[in-house]
Write a protein that binds this DNA or RNA. Structure first.
Lengths: 410, 410
DNA sequence: CTACTTTTTTCGAACCTCGAAATAAAGAGG
DNA sequence: CCTCTTTATTTCGAGGTTCGAAAAAAGTAG
């Protein structure tokens, strides 16, 4: 059904536009906002005054700007840090990291805990996360804004509503109602996302010029994940977070993957896949243990030293990823690429075979990928992406209560 | 950049909503429109009267409804056939089919021509299509509405703006500026689409309950095409029509495809791929000739008669398609499927291996596909989809000129 | 012919955005 | 110190939009 638009929707959308302009462009004056958003100066005045009155924005007092220009000085506006607080939780294998940040996006505090979450049942798993966040909140100094939202970033498959953790390496439990559990405990809106999606979200905010409308992030870690931005929006599955790039089939009847199927990209390019191939182990055997980062570094060193099974293992990984990317690009055209995670440190060993597999022309149209970046600290990216997602959620759902004049008259 | 909303946009959007409700639900009264769209009765009155005045709608005079109910009889409204005319052109290998239809979607006339377009240069190719449409328009009786838009559906790769035919089996020429050529010749808006996208569009309109938000169409013909509806919208590539499902890699280093690469799904499931495998021909040899429909029917008959290379060839085709679908479903979750084209007639020979490859569970989540339909006459679907796309374009771009009262007062 | 029922239109209220004009708040210059 | 100039912001009226309530229209029932 095509959606009907009301009067309020106009105001809400434009108010959101103003807030987004400030998030993107940093503090700016009403005049700047008018130029950036395309709204008239009078409309910007009405909207910003309404937001100021409700405490969502703050005006930077004079002197801070030191304009030295001729006319009336600009009053720069920006999100009011004290207006709200967002919590971001990043889950790993037996690790929980919680962070709180203010409405302006400044981190207020962080807590990293190692907890054996892997073998907990769903309820205990939720409780562990809840208590970590509780501890963090108790540590905060009084006076910070009210907690307004929680974003969780995790490996695994999440339902499309951001409520349920359907399946994740972080826990053996399935269909974990993490969203509702946190919502019940803290009384605020909660969204659970796949970590790769948050990496994409983070890059979109860090470098909008480069990662504006269309790009893909490939997370090379134990598994192989992907975040996709298409047409300026985060792409997700129909019912789940999906984009399980690591489980796209590379070789039918190929090496065994942890998911139980054969030939997945992850079975060649995941940490354990590379390790297995480098050591000449049976491609149909899978262990639960992940190779240590240091062990992988040694493997990479040996591969760089000279040809041999180690180098071949990395080459095979590159080929699997490259083939997968080419297939994806066959579906929606080539887009800029970003690699993140520890695997990005050994990209040099994979790049040749990756590019060879990826760039084979389709119908004479060569596949060209313009941007290939890499980021090692993917945890930080997940956190940043989650934070921005949380802030944008608040901006988007901020009610569009009436004009200022109304209250003045009353 | 987040988009700012103006006053006019509200009206345009709601006017579009009214027109869409009529296209979807057929002729209905203002009261029904109010219920379906969610707009108030007064707003519906204003919008419909404006559309009536401009000739976009007609009121069905009394008597037609024969309500026999108590109160004031409803006045049913529907798109005015004479308001506009849309032309749909379906291109095939050395064939051009042009159809014109009125604003209500009724076909007015059609012309099918066999023309050797394959070896024409770009300009001659455009001219051939232009002259076919000119002939068809000349054949029409006077009094039909003005030509308002042209939609072209074709095999091959089209740029995202619907202007340029980048590469197509219909012609050896590449980067054919078909859109601008037709626009220059007829002075109306032109959009060029991939045929599979139009098949998806057609099904979306034929059975919105079944094919509403998310589904995929697989076109089994000489090649293997796909149309995708995701989140209620036609999915396309970033720069081109894309979704070149047939050229997703099934077997690295596998059979040779016409695109020059190896192991594409089409190399196994396209008409020539099945033929080649059934006859034990070299999988690295490709011919330009396509097997005749009758020859393929014989092949299917032999495959149904008993096991042998023919049956194995169809099984291999099913496996290639099934694997490709599973990979796609790994990216965006399983969705209902529709098969179209001659290949849909031999689906029975492929279905077993197709389902086996497709439904292997990912991380314990079984892949289930609820709806699997098939349509043989895909040309008709392309035509219908193109027509609806053209009509919706007209609805969407209809200006939102002012209130009725204004003119009454003047 | 009158009462009732349902559909459609009319009308005023409440908003929203916009452009023009007015106002505010500096620096520049005498 | 006062006035002029310049730039930013606010005020105000106009025009457009949707909505709810009330009125009008156009039938059927009896």
């Amino acid at each position: 059904m095509s959606i009907i638009v009301r009067q309020d929707d106009v105001r809400r959308q434009n108010q959101f536009g103003v807030l987004m302009a400030l998030r993107r462009g940093g503090a700016m004056s009403r005049t700047d906002l008018s130029a950036v958003t395309g709204l008239s100066a009078s409309t910007v005045t009405v909207i910003t005054n309404s937001l100021l009155e409700r405490g969502a924005l703050v005006a930077h007092s004079i002197g801070e700007t030191t304009s030295q220009r001729r006319g009336r000085p600009q009053v720069r506006l920006s999100p009011n840090p004290a207006h709200a607080t967002v919590a971001v939780i990043v889950l790993g294998l037996n690790t929980i990291q919680a962070t709180v940040a203010d409405y302006a996006g400044n981190a207020l505090g962080s807590l990293f805990e190692r907890t054996p979450t892997k073998h907990l049942d769903a309820e205990s798993f939720n409780n562990a996360i809840t208590s970590t966040l509780k501890r963090l909140l108790d540590m905060q100094e009084p006076g910070f804004g009210p907690l307004s939202g929680i974003i969780v970033g995790t490996e695994g498959i999440v339902d499309i509503d951001g409520n349920t953790l359907l399946s994740s390496p972080a826990t053996d439990a399935t269909d974990v109602p993490l969203g509702p559990a946190l919502e019940a405990a803290f009384g605020v809106h909660v969204e659970v996302y796949n970590e790769s999606n948050m990496i994409a979200e983070a890059l979109h905010w860090k470098a909008p010029a480069r990662y504006g409308s269309d790009f893909a992030t490939v997370l090379l870690s134990t598994g192989v994940g992907m975040g996709l931005y298409l047409n300026g929006k985060l792409f997700s599955g129909v019912r789940t977070s999906a984009v399980e790039f690591g489980h796209v089939c590379h070789e039918p009847n190929g090496a065994l993957c942890r998911c139980g199927r054969r030939g997945c990209i992850e079975a060649y390019a995941g940490g354990y896949g590379i390790w297995r191939a480098a050591h000449g182990e049976d491609p149909l055997s899978v262990t639960e243990d992940d190779p240590e980062d240091t062990a992988m570094a040694e493997l990479a060193a040996r591969a760089r030293a000279g040809d041999g099974p180690e180098r071949q293992a990395f080459r095979a990984a590159g080929k699997a990823i490259g083939t997968g990317l080419r297939n994806l690009f066959t579906i929606f055209d080539p887009i800029p690429l970003v690699f993140a995670g520890q695997g990005a440190a050994v990209l040099d060993l994979m790049m040749e075979s990756l590019e060879e597999a990826m760039t084979k022309p389709v119908f004479g149209l060569p596949v060209t990928v313009s941007v290939i970046d890499s980021y090692l600290d993917y945890r930080a990216l997940i956190r940043e992406g989650g934070l921005m997602r949380g802030l944008v959620y608040l901006d988007q759902t901020m009610p569009a209560v009436g004009d200022v004049r109304e209250k003045v008259l009353a």
